[in-house]
Design a protein around this nucleic acid. Structure first.
Lengths: 133, 133
DNA sequence: GCACAACTTTACGTTAACGTAAACTTCATA
DNA sequence: TATGAAGTTTACGTTAACGTAAAGTTGTGC
C-alpha cells in the first residue's frame, strides 16, 4: 500500500512515516476512539481530518495531555452545544485547561531561564579551560 | 511526627500536606534517587534543599518530564564539570531541553488561542440563547 | 502501661500507552 | 504462481509512577 489512493487520503504507513510513530500507535488511538478512519475492505484509509487529529494528538502528548484528555478536547468541537447547562460545563472545562496551560507557560519560562544560566556557566568554564591551555 | 524538628526541617507528612501528594510518592522519589533526606533513627528528615527538590520534581511533572529526566537535570547542577568533553555533552543536553521547551511554548500558545476562540463561541451562543428567552 | 498516631519496610496490584509476536489476508510483480 | 511487502486481528508483555495492604517500630498523651 505504498501508492497514495488519492491526493487527500493516506495509508497507515504514510502517516506513521510522516509523524515518525508506529502503526501500532495509530491503531491504538483508533481503539481509544480518537480517530475513525474509513475502510476500503479491511484496510484503513485516512483523510485530511484524520491527519489533523493525529497531529493534534501528538501536540497534546508534547504538552503532557493524556489520550483521554485530548479526546475530551476533541469532543468540545464535536458536541452540538444546545443546552445552556452543557455550554456552561464546557466553558468551565475550557477555563480549567486554560489555567493549566498558563501555569505551564510560567513553568517553562522559569526552566528556560535556569537553563540559559546553566549554559552560560558551562561556556564560562569552557573558555577558561581554553585559555589555560 | 506532627511537630517540626527545627525551623528548617520537615517531616514526610509536612511535605505531603504542603504539596498535596502522598507520602508514598515522596518515598518513591527517594527510591529513584531524586531526594536523599537525612535520618533520625529510621525516620526521614527533610531540609530546605529536599523541599526545593520536591518542588522542582512537581514542576517537572507539570511539564511532562519523567522522573528520570528531572533526575538528569538535577545532575547537571551537581556534577563537577571538570572535563571539556563532559561540559560539551552537558551543553548539548541543555540545548536539547531548550528546544523541547521552546516547542512546548509554541504548542501552548497555539492551544490557548484555540481555547480562547472556543470560549468566545460558547459565550456567543449562550448570549443568543439568553436573548431568545 | 497502653492506646494510637505517625512513621517505617516489603511486596504485590494497577493503569496508560504502547511493544511484540503470531497467524492471517491482499496485492503487485518477477 | 509464488514470493514479498503492507495490511489486518488477537492477545500477551512491558514500563513508569505510583496505590494499597500487611506487619512492624517509635514517640506521646492519658
Amino acid at each position: 500500500m505504498t501508492k497514495k489512493i488519492s491526493s487527500l487520503s493516506y495509508s497507515i504507513s504514510d502517516l506513521s512515516k510522516e509523524f515518525d510513530i508506529t502503526t501500532r500507535s495509530i491503531r491504538f488511538y483508533e481503539d481509544q476512539g480518537l480517530i475513525a478512519p474509513s475502510r476500503k475492505g479491511q484496510t484503513r484509509i485516512y483523510n485530511q481530518r484524520d491527519r489533523v487529529r493525529l497531529k493534534l494528538i501528538l501536540r497534546g502528548k508534547r504538552l503532557g495531555f493524556s489520550l483521554a484528555e485530548t479526546g475530551r478536547l476533541f469532543e468540545l468541537y464535536d458536541v452540538d452545544k444546545t443546552s445552556a447547562t452543557q455550554l456552561n460545563s464546557i466553558m468551565s472545562l475550557i477555563s480549567d485547561k486554560k489555567s493549566d496551560l498558563k501555569q505551564q507557560l510560567d513553568d517553562i519560562n522559569a526552566v528556560l531561564i535556569e537553563l540559559d544560566d546553566l549554559e552560560k556557566n558551562c561556556k564560562d568554564i569552557l573558555s577558561s579551560l581554553e585559555n589555560n591551555k
